[in-house]
Every structure is written in structure tokens, then in C-alpha cells.
Design a protein around this nucleic acid. Structure first.
Length: 431
RNA sequence: UCCCGAGUAGCUCAGUCGGUAGAGCAGCUGACUGUUAAUCAGCGGGUCGGGGGUUCGAGUCCCUCCUCGGGAGCCA
């Protein structure tokens, strides 16, 4: 008898097949019983009429517990009553491996309990749906860049003290070379690669040791960082809006079922098309002041400020050209207003906040060195980075997209820790 | 680091004025031939986060410590 995957059962209508999976729920009504199982490809209800199953099967059904590994045999049948359209009229069931006292029950759990059992919680319908959306976004990222001639460059996770700021890095001992730090960005490396390959991106885990306790932060998260030679800040934002709208469209096209499972209202996602809305930092300050805020030009925007700004638009918003002093040393000075730099944040709608930070990079050796010194960084550490300006300096721009923030937004889930299989937070290293 | 909030049954929570510890769900037993978190009946289940104090008596009041959650800052 052939084994069948649940997702493929539409090709097996009328046939008798064996399905392997985990028991999610069982129900019995005396002379008819129901078993819903999951095999990773989908969900299936197997129906056991007492007087049609083989000898012993009825008693074996009674031993099927929540999340037991089971083997079910039966005939595939179309059924309008089934959520997926297909059911199995089962003739037999075997418990391959039992599951006793499964901790996650069908009702009411708090988030602390669920994350303590994250390794099991991953099996639930919502978590399966989120994982599939994340997978879709990851593949869409790879396809988007491959189709446009970008080369993926994998940047190091172990680095010297380099990144946007010193401090707030995870440190470890590195042989005889002193401390190594877990990368908090691949950007500087990808800038070097851009001079070799033109259009590049990196996509991997990054680490921030800030003691953040918010629904938007993880200590370990995945970031996608494209870097493009000869692209200025305007080119950079056009790439961002193409990129983000492409990711959203891909999920809408291919993950309808998962979005339905997550009860995601897709109308706001369907409005995510280029061009996005744009506002300069200076205009944003004026707009906030007009709304009664006492924010002053020169201070960074807080989370509340971003929410207030983004609320005025029903698609993602670029906030551009922040004051130099609140931004990283590598961002290029704005020739039209030297108080500011050529950067942008991209704020997702519906209150999801910043999903992208991007900028044109400082390509002038002397200006970059001056910024490194001004921020109290050690120029020796950045020698190789300065070399990129010494040997054929070039206009270039790039950005970083936070994967978990993007997935959380697309899924419509309230906290980004559900957007990654095993979240790392200041109070969570288990499982 | 700062500001809130919460720790009581396996889970989610209630517990009034300080007076013998409660419910729902889960689990177990039974009934039921189309259930979707099935329904109905019955049964078992407690170091009230730890320590100290006040009191005849503390889940409840006071002190202290611990753990966790939410938010701020930082940023993706």
C-alpha cells in the first residue's frame, strides 16, 4: 500500500493509501470516531465507522493520544464537509510511537508557557502557518535578488570590533587574537564585496546585545542587506519599494491558506505597491509639531513618533535624511543640507514600525575618517573599510531589512518572537 | 538601566472585610453514527514564587528577595 502525503491526497481519490502523521485531535461518538492528523504538508481528518474498520482498529483508536505518531490507512474521499476538501474513510490505525501527557492542550495558554514549550508549540496550526510564510519570504528574497543579477555574499558572524557602534556586542574569546564579537551587521563587508561584484547582498543571523524588551526586538535576528555600486539614495529607495512590495505580493500569491489560518486581513497588504510614501525628517518634525508634539529638530524619532507618522499613510513610509549626529558614521552627508545624511528608514503600516534602515554610504576617504574620529572609533580597526575609499572609491548605497519584523507584519502577529522558530531574548535561551 | 504589571491545580484564572482552597479547561471512566476547541454524566488533582514579620488566625496586611510579562531607550 503506497504512503501518501496529505497535500497530495487529491491525486489519490478513490484509492486506499497509508498516511503517516501526528494525531492532533480525536473525537468519538460511540459508533463513529474522528482523528485529525498533521504530516507537515497539511491536515487530514480520518473517519472511523465502527462497523467498517478492521478487527482491533476500534480498540487501537482508543489508544491514540494527542501528538502520538500514527499510521492510518483508508480510502481517500472528496467531502464538502472537510476543511481541505478531502477526507479519509479509515480502515485501520496504528500508534507508531505514543505521546503521553502532551503539555500543550487545545485551549488557553499564556505566552510564557508556550515559549517554554516552543519545541512543541511549533506543531500548532498557527505556528506552522507562520513558518511557511517565513519560508516563502526567504525564498522570495533569494529569487528577487537572483533575478536582478545580485550575488549573495555570506559575511562573517565572528568579527573584530566593528559595526555601527562599539559596545552592545556579544563577545567571545578568539584563540590568541583576543576578543571576537558576533556580527551585528554584514554591511561593511558587503560594501567591500560590492566593489568586486557590483550588486550584492548578505542574508544571515545578526546579534545585538542590547537589553531590549519590546515586541520588536530579538537578540538574534535575521537581516537581509543588499549593497549596490553606483546607486545613490534615490536608487536605494526605489530598490527598497520594489523589494518590499515584491515580498508581500509573493506571499499573497502563494500563501493564501496560511494567511487565512492566521486570520490576516489582506486588504492592507494588497495596498503595498510602489511607490511608497516619502517624507523628510525635517518635514516629519514639522508634522509632529503640528500635531502638538514638543519634539525638536535634531533629536531622533522615537517609536511613538514613528507610529504617529506612519498612521497618516496606508502604505509603507520612507522617512529620509536624518540629522547627522543621530546616525551612523558611514552615512553620506547630504550635499543639499549638510546637517543631515542621505539615509532612509522604511516604516511598515499598521503600526509595525521600522522594517528597513538604509543609506547612501560615505565614499570620500577624508570625510569618512573624520566621522570615525568624531564618533570616538578607532581608525585602525576600520583600516580595511577605509581602503574601499582609497582604491577606487565609488558611490554606493544599501539597506538592511529585518526578516522577523517583515514576517510579523505580513502575518499580522503582535510580537516578532513568533516569527522565528527559536527566539533569542534577554530572558530566553531555552529551548 | 528605568517605568508599570503578574506569580494560587497540568493550563487559564477567581478568591470580597484576615476566618477550613475554588471554577473552567486538560486528564481518567462511562454514554452517544458526522464531529470540527464535539456534547453530556461522574472521578482524581494544591509547598497559594522563596524567606521573614504582624496576628488567636495570612493566598489576603507589611518587609525583602527571586522569576516572568508589557512598555521606554537602542535598533532591523
Amino acid at each position: 500500500m503506497p504512503y501518501a502525503s496529505i497535500a497530495d491526497l487529491r491525486h489519490n481519490v478513490g484509492q486506499t493509501v497509508a498516511v503517516r502523521g501526528w494525531a492532533m485531535t480525536t473525537r468519538s461518538s460511540g459508533k463513529i470516531a474522528f482523528l485529525v492528523l498533521r504530516d507537515g504538508t497539511g491536515y487530514l481528518q480520518a473517519v472511523f465507522p465502527k462497523n467498517e474498520v478492521v478487527d482491533g482498529a476500534w480498540d487501537r483508536f482508543a489508544t491514540v493520544t494527542h501528538e502520538a505518531n500514527v499510521l492510518v490507512t483508508g480510502r481517500v474521499r472528496e467531502d464538502a464537509r472537510a476543511p481541505g476538501g478531502y477526507e479519509l474513510t479509515a480502515s485501520d490505525v496504528t500508534v507508531v510511537a505514543p505521546s503521553v501527557d502532551y503539555p500543550i492542550t487545545p485551549k488557553e495558554h499564556g505566552t510564557a508557557f508556550l515559549f517554554e514549550h516552543r519545541h512543541l508549540w511549533l506543531r500548532s496550526r498557527r505556528q506552522v502557518a507562520i513558518a511557511k510564510v517565513r519560508n516563502e519570504v526567504e525564498h522570495a528574497i533569494a529569487d528577487f535578488f537572483y533575478d536582478r543579477g545580485f550575488v549573495r555574499v555570506d559575511t562573517p558572524i565572528l568579527t573584530g570590533s566593528i559595526g555601527e557602534e562599539a559596545g552592545e556586542l556579544f563577545a567571545t574569546e578568539y584563540f590568541d587574537l583576543g576578543s571576537a564579537y558576533l556580527a551585528q551587521t554584514g554591511q561593511l563587508y558587503v560594501e567591500a564585496a560590492a566593489a568586486a561584484l557590483g550588486k550584492v547582498y548578505c542574508f544571515g543571523p545578526t546579534f545585538r546585545a542590547e537589553k531590549s524588551k519590546t515586541r520588536r526586538h530579538l537578540t538574534e535576528f535575521w537581516m537581509c542587506e543588499p549593497e549596490v555600486a553606483f546607486a545613490d539614495s534615490e536608487d536605494n529607495m526605489r530598490l527598497q519599494e520594489d523589494f518590499v512590495s515584491n515580498l508581500v505580493a509573493r506571499v499573497l500569491d502563494r500563501r493564501k491558506e496560511e494567511l487565512t489560518e492566521l486570520e490576516r486581513d489582506t486588504a492592507p497588504l494588497e495596498r503595498v505597491t510602489a511607490p511608497f510614501a516619502r517624507i523628510s525628517y525635517t518635514d516629519a518634525i514639522a508634522a509632529l509639531q503640528a500635531q502638538g508634539s514638543d519634539i525638536q529638530w535634531g533629536t531622533d524619532l522615537g517609536a511613538d513618533d514613528e507610529t504617529a507618522l506612519a498612521k497618516a499613510y496606508d502604505k509603507p513610509l520612507f522617512v529620509m535624511n536624518y540629522p547627522k549626529q543621530v546616525k551612523a558614521f558611514y552615512m553620506k552627508e547630504n550635499p543639499d543640507d549638510p546637517r543631515t545624511v542621505l539615509n532612509n528608514d522604511c516604516l511598515a503600516p499598521e503600526g509595525y514600525g521600522e522594517i528597513i534602515g538604509g543609506s547612501q554610504r560615505e565614499d570620500d576617504y577624508d570625510r569618512l575618517l573624520a566621522r570615525i574620529n568624531a564618533q570616538g572609533l578607532d581608525p585602525a580597526t576600520y583600516k580595511w573599510y577605509l581602503d574601499l575609499r582609497k582604491y577606487g572609491g565609488f558611490v554606493h548605497s544599501g539597506f538592511g531589512l529585518g526578516l522577523e519584523r517583515t514576517v510579523a507584519w505580513i502575518c499580522g502577529i503582535p510580537h516578532i518572537r513568533e516569527a522565528i522558530a527559536f527566539p533569542r531574548q534577554i530572558h530566553r535561551l531555552y529551548p
